[in-house]
């Protein structure tokens, strides 16, 4: 590693192209957006460069703070649900027999090979009033009704009422859990996979049951992966825009949608930039808190 770094030519050949790419296509546009965030919007949506904080001030007005707060809230809830689903899944894959592991990992990654838009529309087909889930429930309802009618209790089930599953906050959470599950599963899987299984055997050997081992040994030792996975799911959920736009109702707007609207229909790039950077600052604060927490107590792995 050291000698490789010392070879200036090899080092620059390998490092320069990606650096240049990042600077030209990422850092510079980001800087432009940052400059815009202090600019003023003209009457036709023009951008007048300036140095004022009006956009930021507007971003923290109550109406926008409400949306930001709701985004944080929705992201937190969906991250919690994703963790509840994802941790057992990651554990299942990590402790599965070797020959199953790759297949199971593939199944987790598989959705990435399909366009997110199509997958989200598929959820609409599942969740809408005349969707697959309601069809399934109705079928169950009919079966039970027939059964009760057979044993002499007609009308006990009543009329089937289709559930309102789509275009509300619940649909957004379901969609977010679905989309960001792999982002949470993979880091947790990676830590569990590296985990020396002797720790778990030692715990059992010392008299702990499987649940005790899970909470006292497996979880604490998988913490680095858990934190990475949850942060990833949280940050991505918070900035999401497609899921609430398609699955959410009128009250489900998240900060991502607000930003998207500034750049499209509102034609207010300066305000959109300010909102974007607010989201970015929020993300940085979360990452900084995590980093300082990790350095304060030396992680177990």
């Amino acid at each position: 590693m050291e000698s490789w770094r010392k070879n200036k030519l090899a080092f620059s050949v390998l490092v320069l192209p990606p650096t240049a790419w990042l600077v030209i296509f990422f850092t510079v546009p980001l800087l432009i957006m940052w400059v815009y965030s202090f600019a003023e919007r003209g009457p036709q949506g023009q951008i007048y460069l300036a140095v004022n904080f009006a956009n930021y001030a507007r971003a923290i007005e109550w109406i926008h703070l409400g949306i930001i707060w709701k985004s944080v809230w929705v992201a937190a809830i969906s991250t919690a649900i994703t963790f509840a689903v994802g941790f057992p899944l990651a554990m299942g894959i990590a402790f599965a027999p070797t020959r199953w592991k790759n297949l199971l990992l593939l199944l987790v990654i598989l959705p990435f090979w399909t366009n997110l838009l199509i997958r989200t529309y598929a959820w609409i087909a599942v969740l809408r009033t005349r969707g697959f889930l309601n069809f399934g429930l109705e079928w169950l309802h009919d079966e039970f009704s027939a059964f009760f009618a057979l044993i002499g209790l007609p009308d006990v089930m009543g009329e089937f009422q289709a559930l309102e599953l789509l275009y509300n906050q619940k649909a957004v959470v379901i969609g977010l859990v679905y989309v960001y599950l792999p982002f949470l599963v993979l880091p947790i899987y990676a830590t569990l996979e590296k985990l020396n299984k002797s720790y778990l055997e030692a715990s059992l050997d010392l008299g702990a049951g499987h649940w005790r081992t899970l909470f006292s040994v497996t979880m604490p030792l998988a913490m680095p992966g858990v934190v990475s996975g949850c942060l990833l799911a949280f940050i991505l959920s918070m900035g999401t825009f497609l899921t609430p736009a398609l699955l959410g109702g009128t009250d489900s707007e998240m900060i991502g949608n607000l930003i998207a609207r500034q750049f499209s229909s509102s034609r207010d790039w300066p305000f959109g930039s300010a909102l974007s950077f607010l989201l970015l600052y929020l993300t940085f604060i979360i990452l900084w808190v995590r980093a300082s927490m990790a350095s304060r107590k030396r992680g177990p792995i």
């Binding site: 020396n196 002797s198 720790y199 055997e201 030692a202 715990s203 040994v217 604490p220 030792l221 913490m223 177990p300 792995i301």
Partner: peptide, 9 residues
């Protein structure tokens, strides 16, 4: 255990 498996946390 061969690796001792002393819990690091």
């Amino acid at each position: 255990f061969q690796s001792y498996a002393v819990f690091p946390h």
